Amino acid sequence: MNQKLRKTVAEQLVRTFGPGEPLILGRAPGRVNLIGEHTDYNDGFVFPMALDFEIVVAGRRRADRTVRLLAVDLREKVEFSLAEPIVFDEHFGWSNYLRGVLKLLQQSGAELPGMELAFAGDVPLGSGLSSSAALEVATAIVVQRMTGFGIERPALAKLCQRAENEFVGMNCGIMDQFISMMGEQDHALFLDCRSLEYRQIPLELGAYRIVVCHSGVKHSLVESEYNRRRQECEAGVRVLAAHFPEIKALRDARPEQLVACQNELDPVVYRRCRHVISEDARVLESIQALNHGDLVRFGQMMNESHDSLRDLYEVSCSEIDLLVELARQVPGVLGARITGGGFGGCTVNLVAEEAVDRFTERICRLYREKTGIDARIFISKAADGAQIIE
């Protein structure tokens, strides 16, 4: 809980736009996905937790139809009118996450007033910890409170995902917005991305901690390669469905069905499908391991997940692979893997509490020696999802 951040956002809105209506403050967390990567847009299973890093949005009504947006950290502001259609902003790209949410709320029947919205956060940008989803979700709950628009939280998360898909142009799955909206303290969230059925799973780690390592890199091909992976998965489904009509998405396919179609599949597409099918199975096995208190098996699943993402899905990079390699060499580390969309960002690690200091020193020193980049280390407990701050 970052009280200073919340105070800063509120003060900056008033300082920038002057006096006005009472403020509504909302927060939404970033997330780390413990396991289940690139499965969400294949109707599969994911297992993320909300982090205790957040985006805070302050908002208030205006008497006219003008919308003013303020990015506190960037010291940038934009303005547009609701008397005209909400359009994509080529210059201030950050504003499109808010614009998209407003447009989708409008299309869903919300009566939007003019408003002022300001935001800032402590979710590391470009880290793969879903600062964009947190911004969308925090915006959505503030505007929902402002308008009284009636919509259930899972549906509001879905609306935020559509805003990123249809307005921002990033073809993400539902996981990021859903965990930011629905997270629960001391729990990770098992989500069926087809039905949106979910279960809060107690994250009973005993003497172990979730440690996130930020690589300090984000390669520029992430968006184009992400969308290409989706296309490759869809190509695989078309071949599989021709033989097995019950397969509507890769989540429906069994390993033996994939093997039966191997000769008809492009080798790259085959590898992509093999990752997704095995990753869904790993999510289910990981939750079973947690339920039995078997953290060693949970860590093994994390390791297998990374190896699959590196070799079959090919979304890792040399810096991330180095972080994982260094982590696995530290006594007391049960598992280490890439998390997020790939091509940089972060790793997530399951580390014995007594080994965290040793882990941090070794990773930072050796990573710096080999890359010249300073890794950043975050330790987080599972946090609550989005909330209006009363």
Rank of each mutant, 00 (worst) to 15 (best):
A241W: 00
V296G: 08
V324F: 03
V315Y: 02
E234Q: 10
R31E: 06
G44M: 06
Y208M: 00
D176K: 05
L112P: 08
C233T: 14
A336Q: 10
D252C: 06
E197L: 04
R271L: 05
R65G: 10
I320N: 04
R274C: 06
D384Q: 12
F53Y: 15
Q231V: 11
L125A: 13
D374P: 00
A110D: 08
S127F: 03
L125K: 10
E354F: 00
A386F: 03
V283D: 05
F17V: 14
E90C: 05
I247F: 00
Q231N: 10
I201R: 02
L312C: 11
N96T: 11
I377A: 01
L221N: 11
A327W: 09
S180H: 05
L117H: 02
I24L: 10
N263E: 10
D192A: 06
Y270P: 02
I55Y: 03
R60S: 14
N33Q: 10
G206S: 05
R254T: 13
H306N: 07
Q107M: 09
F47K: 07
D374Y: 02
E11H: 11
D64W: 01
C346T: 15
Y270V: 05
D357W: 01
Q387G: 13
H214W: 03
L74N: 11
R358N: 12
G20N: 09
R337T: 15
G114M: 02
S305C: 11
E136L: 00
G150E: 15
H275G: 10
E166R: 06
Y313H: 10
E234W: 00
L135V: 04
M146G: 13
G121T: 07
L51G: 15
Q329S: 15
L240M: 07
R228C: 04
R251D: 04
E164Y: 03
C213F: 02
L105G: 07
T39C: 07
R238G: 11
E369V: 13
R230F: 04
D40Q: 08
A289N: 09
E79Q: 15
E11K: 11
A110M: 03
S278L: 06
T339E: 10
H214L: 04
N349A: 06
Y41S: 14
G44D: 13
D307C: 01
T339Q: 07
R310T: 12
R65F: 13
V333D: 06
G335N: 12
R145H: 07
F80R: 09
E353M: 05
M301W: 02
E353T: 14
I210K: 00
S380E: 09
V351Y: 01
P22V: 14
Q106S: 15
G341H: 06
L326D: 14
D176I: 08
A281G: 09
E353Y: 01
A63Y: 09
N42L: 06
L295V: 15
R60K: 15
D122R: 04
E390K: 10
L258G: 09
A260Y: 05
A249W: 01
K77S: 15
S108D: 15
K370A: 12
Q200S: 11
